[in-house]
Simulated scan of single mutants.
Amino acid sequence: MEIKNSKELKKYNRYIILNQIIERQPISRTELAEILNVSHTTISQLVKELIEEDLVVESYTKSTGGRPPKILSFKGYNKYIITLSFKETVISLAIFDLNFKLLHAEKINVKDNELTGLIEVIGDVLERLILEKKIKKKQILAMGISVPGIYKDNQDLIISSTAPYLNGQSLMKKIKNKVDFCPVFIQNDANIAVHYEWNYMLKKRYDNLIFIYIGDGIGSGIIIGNKLYSGSHGNAGELGHMQVKSTGKRCICGGTGCLEMLSSIKAIENEFKEKVYFTIDEIIKGYLSGEEKCKRVIDRAVKYFARALSSMVSFFDPEIIILGDFHNLYRGKIKDKLEEEMKKSHIFCVEDRPELILRNDRGDYQFSALYIYVFEHWKKEI
C-alpha cells in the first residue's frame, strides 16, 4: 500500500491494528505495540476509536496478583455481511456475521431473464430476512456480489456472462436502488475464488497461483506476486475464450474453437442432447463405468482443457493450480488424466510443473469465498 499523507497513514494503522486484534484476539495493547512496532500512543488512540465505533471490546483478564491486565477482542457478532452469488438459473443469498458465522442461506430461482424483476425479488427477500432476524440496516456493513463473466467496475457493466440476464447490465446501479444502506462490492466469481484460496485456504503460502472454475462456462482467477491480477481492462482470466481449436461452434464472445465450447459442463451435456438428455452427473457416472461415448466426450474435453492449462502454465508460471467445481466428481481420475496430458507439453524443467489441487465444491464455498473477499475489503475501507 502506497501511503501519501498522514490521513492515509492513520487509515493504514487502523487497518493493521484491527486485523491483528481479529487474528490474535484476545490481545493487549502492549502486545499490539510490540508486534506492530507502533508507539503505545498511536495504539491507544486508534484502539479508543475502534471501541467507540463498537468494533472492539475491552475486558479484564484474571489477575494473578496486582492490577488485572486489559485485553482487546473484535466485536463481530452483531454486525453483518450479505452475499449474493449470481448464476444462470439461480441466485444464492447468504447472511454472515463478522465472526464468519453463516446465519442464513437460501436460493432464488431465476424464472425469467429480466434483471429488474430479479432485483425486486432480492429486495423483498432481504426485507423479510431483516425482519425475521431482527437486524437493523445500520448493522449491515457491506454486501458482496459474485457474477459469472467480466465486471467492468469503471463502467458498471457486465459482459461475456453465462447468465444472459446479466449481459450488458449496470448491476451496481440497479442493486443500489434497492440496497442503499451499505457499500456494495461486485467481482467476477473466479477472482473471488482465487482470492479466497490464496488468502484463507492456503494462508498466503504461495505468491503465484491460479484458480480455474469449470461450470456452464470456464473462468480463472489469477494471483501474481500476492496480488489479484485482472489485467489492464479487467478482462484477465477469461480462460474459456482461449482458442484451442481452429474451428467449432460459435461462442458468446463471437469466436470459434473456444475452450468453453469444448470443455465446459454445458458443452459436455450438449453432446448428448441430440438423442437422449444426460446430466453431467450421469455422464461422469458413464465415464467412470467405461461407457464408450461418455469416455470419448470426456477425454476430448480433457485434451483441450489440458492444452489450455499448459498455455496458462507457460504464460504465468504458477506455483499451484486449483481446479474447482465439477472436477471432484471424477474421484481423482481427472487429475491423473490432466497430468498425463500436461506431460506432453513443453515445460523447461519437470520440477517446475505446478501442483494441481482438486477443490471440492461444498455447498457454502462461494458464500465463504465472497464473505472473505468483502470482509478483507471492508477492513481496509473503514
Rank of each mutant, 00 (worst) to 15 (best):
V297F: 01
N208M: 08
N177E: 14
F211R: 10
K134P: 01
P69V: 15
E127I: 04
L126R: 02
D325F: 05
K138R: 15
L102H: 03
G117T: 08
I22P: 01
A369C: 05
I175P: 02
C294H: 03
V276D: 15
C294I: 08
I135P: 07
I158Y: 05
M143F: 02
T30A: 07
K333I: 09
L55A: 01
K343F: 12
G286F: 08
S345N: 06
T61W: 15
K203E: 12
L93P: 06
V244Y: 02
K335E: 04
F375E: 00
H40T: 13
Y371M: 09
N167F: 12
L50N: 02
M201R: 14
I22T: 05
E132G: 06
F278A: 11
I298M: 01
V244T: 05
H40Q: 12
H233V: 14
P26Y: 11
Y12I: 00
K101V: 09
D207T: 12
K7M: 13
G66C: 04
I71L: 07
F272P: 06
L50R: 00
D124A: 13
I298L: 02
A308V: 09
I145P: 04
G65D: 09
K4W: 10
R307T: 14
N78W: 13
P148C: 14
S289G: 08
G290I: 14
E88F: 07
C253E: 10
I222L: 12
F305Q: 04
I357T: 07
F348W: 03
P148K: 14
K333V: 09
I334R: 10
L288M: 13
L98P: 01
Y277H: 13
V121C: 09
Y330R: 06
K178E: 09
L309W: 12
F181A: 04
V313L: 11
I265M: 10
I268R: 01
V47I: 07
L338K: 03
K176L: 14
E58M: 05
V38S: 02
N235E: 15
T279C: 07
D299R: 10
N226R: 02
Y80S: 04
L115Y: 07
H40D: 11
G225W: 02
K275N: 10
S289P: 08
L356A: 07
I27D: 00
L262T: 11
S28D: 11
K152Q: 09
T116Q: 09
K152W: 04
I322S: 05
P148F: 13
L166A: 08
G234P: 06
K136G: 10
Y287R: 00
